[in-house]
Structures are given as C-alpha cells and as structure tokens.
Write a protein that binds this DNA or RNA. Structure first.
Lengths: 220, 220
DNA sequence: AACTATAGGTGTACGCCGTACACTTGTCAA
DNA sequence: TTGACAAGTGTACGGCGTACACCTATAGTT
C-alpha cells in the first residue's frame, strides 16, 4: 500500500493520510485529534498533509466516508426485514469501532460510500413494496434509532452487565443525593443484576421497530 | 435578574453567564462558541468568566442542564402513553431550539434538571406497570429515537416540504452523478411533493414505537 | 545520462483558542 | 473609615488550523 521512494522515505498519499487519521481518531477521539498530531504520527510536518487533503473539514468528510464503507449494505437475497436488521447491526458495529464518527455521519458532505449505502437502503424498502411515503418514514425511524442508540451507548460506555454495574455505581457516587431520585436509585441497584448487554438491548428496540414497520406495510 | 452596581456596571453572575452562553450557542452553534466571544458579548474580559465557571467544560455542563430544564417532564395525570408522547415532543422541541446541545445531552456530567427528568421518565414507566427490565428497554428505544431524530433533523436542516425540496435539490446538485443512485434520485424528485413535515415525521415514528411498547407491556 | 517541469515536503508566521497567574478595583460588614 | 474578600483585568503560554514562500525529490522527455 505505502509507496517507498528511492530515499527510503515512505511517500504520503490521500488514502494513507485518511487511514492514519481514522486510526488516530479511534485511539484518541475527536477531542484528541488534530492535524498536528496526525502529521506527527505520519512522521511529517503538519503542512505536508495539505498536499493531500484540502483542509481539516474535508479530511473529516473522507474519514466519515471510510466508516460508511465499512457498513454492510442490506443483503439483496434476504427478505426486507432480515436485510434491514442486518444492515442496522452492521451500522451499529461500525459506529462502535469508530465512536468519534457518530455525530458526523449525517452532518458531513456525503461521499460515495454514503450515497451507495443510502441508495441501497432506500432501494431495499421500495423493492419490498413500501410506498414512497412509508419508505421515507421507515428509513427515518430506523436511522434515528440506530444513531441515537450508538450515541447513548458511547456515552454510557459500558458493555457487559458488570461494567454497567460499575458505571452506574460511579454515576451514583458522583450524584450524591440519590435518594431524591428513587427511580434512578432503582437503576443503580437493579441494573447490574439484570444482565444488561448492548447488542441485546439494541436488538430489542430494533425488532420492536421492525415489527411496527411490518404492520404498517401490511396495512397499506 | 442582572444586578447593577453603584458604578452602573452590570454585575456578572453564574446564571447570567449561562444564559448568555446558551444565547450565543443558539445563534452561532458550538463551532462559533468560544469563551472569548462569550466574554465579549457580556462586555467583559475573557478571564472574568472564570470567576463564575470553573472552565469551558463545566460551562457546557451547565448549558446542557438549562436545556434539560426546558423539557416538560411526563405528566403525572395522563396515562403513560400520553405522558411519554408529550415529553418526547417537548424534548424534540427543546433540542430544536438548541441544536448545539443534541450531541451533548447524554455525554455531559448530569446536572439536577437532567436527573429530575430521567427520574420522572423512569418513574412514569414503572408506575404504569412496566417491569424493571422492560422499562429500561422502553426508555432506551424512546431516547435513542428522540436524540437520533433530532440529530437527523438538524443535519437535513429543513422544516416544510418546500424547504425539503430545495434542500434535496441542492444536495442532488452537489452529488453530480445522481443517475447512479436511482433511489436517491427518487427522493430528490418525490420528496418536495410529498408534504414532508418534521413534527409529523417525528410523530409517525414515535407512535410506532409507543404502539410496540404497549404491545410488549400487555404481553408481560 | 542530463534536463526540467511538477508534485511532495518544509519553515515561518498569523490569528484564533483555553486558561494560569499575578494584579487592581469595587463592595459590603464591622 | 477601614479592611477583607469578591469581581474584574492584563499579560503570557502553549496549542490549534492553515496561508504563503520556499526547497527537493521524482518522473518524463530528449
């Protein structure tokens, strides 16, 4: 991938810069991501980056499109429901790997992978017999749920029930007057033992939504 | 509210700083929000702010809690479904007024208004007969949807069908090879005429989710 | 193999940012 | 009136994105 030159120096390229940028953001979050640090990671002076990307904004656009590229499009063999379920799960997984991207997935100038993905999802719904209007609704609910869930998941920052317990306890400590909020107290007390698990939680809501969509589709 | 001194100078205070901060963010977004600009708006030198807030992070925490304070908690008189519906709509409206807050609502150290709100929502569900586990699920789906929808809405940035048409056309222009994406092309062509409207769109998905929750609740 | 246009990399500098620290000034209680 | 303490100031530092002028390595032509 990386092209070496006669002088043994690894030559920069746009894909290489993007790849390193994603890696840096994965490691440090958007907060710890800067052009200067990226340049340092690549063993190069900051301004060198600008020969390969127009500016930071455009670089972020490219990074987001890499994340879109990692999302499996809806399968064209399966029925619409399995196809939607699969791509939703794939989307969540990609967002889990690249938590910094969540807020930007729908905010940035769309790249090719983004367009392909959106086109495929809409296509899957239309082919499945959803009317245009219902397909738009269906798309909107699903994506709102997916991105919203990813956002929550990132915030809460726990994966297994044990982690959940620890995280909730930590929060409870920080809050202090927990007795004023009995239902939060209940969460702090019960969640650790409840077997909370992010993929399961995600699927619960996803299936609820897909159920509803199926009913709406049949009704029309 | 603002306390004047003998010298006629308006005296700063934490609430006053927070209020001005929210106003500034409303106007310029998080991008255009800085301590220095906020100080300027308040007619004061930047460092003066630090007598009232610990630092920018803590200021953001406070701003987010103001937004939480604007959200109507679930009504205790209504049935759970109307109560949830009402607070969801109120949440979306608050997030619409303060678009900069969306990404931070669940990321920041929770303030009192945040805790009150979460406690009230969880309480409403439990009182309505949701089991603990189902209440957690129900909470999770709803909030994921609400925040996810707000995020989309902010991105797409249109309100009425006309705006939607214009926005979609603009996007289409920017994309160029739209014929490669037939289903996006369909959106560009059809959406303007479809009567798209954000509150309606939001309610469609919300009701779908509440339907599903009701069914799950009855089943248990 | 030598020459040259050009793409890739450098160095310096500017105006922003958050905020530490030492200071002056204003206010209110005694 | 005084003196303690809270509020506001001024200066400075290190980090940020990036404009601009510069040098250098590379590849295509002869």
């Amino acid at each position: 991938m990386n092209q070496r030159t006669n002088t043994g120096r690894t030559r920069l390229s746009r894909p290489l810069v993007l790849e390193a940028a994603v890696a840096l953001a994965d490691e440090n979050g958007l907060e710890g991501f800067s052009m200067r640090r990226l340049a340092q990671d690549l063993g190069v002076v900051p301004m060198a980056l600008y020969k390969h990307v127009a500016n930071k904004d455009e670089l972020l656009d490219g990074m987001v499109d890499i994340v879109f590229g990692e999302i499996e499009p809806p399968s064209i063999d399966d029925d619409w429901r399995s196809a939607m379920r699969g791509r939703a799960i794939s989307t969540r997984e990609a967002l889990k790997r690249h938590g910094w991207a969540i807020e930007m997935m729908e905010t940035r100038n769309p790249g090719p992978a983004n367009l392909r993905n959106h086109n495929a999802v809409m296509g899957c719904l239309r082919e499945a017999g959803f009317s245009f209007a219902t397909a738009i609704h269906a798309y909107s609910v699903q994506d709102a749920y997916i991105y919203g869930f990813a956002l929550q998941e990132k915030t809460l920052g726990f994966e297994t029930p044990n982690d959940a317990g620890a995280a909730v306890q930590r929060r409870a400590q920080a809050i202090g007057a927990l007795h004023e909020y009995p239902y939060l107290a209940e969460i702090a007390a019960e969640l650790p033992a409840s077997g909370y698990d992010n993929p399961v939680e995600f699927a619960w809501g996803l299936d609820l939504i897909l159920d509803g969509l199926d009913r709406r589709r049949r009704a029309a």
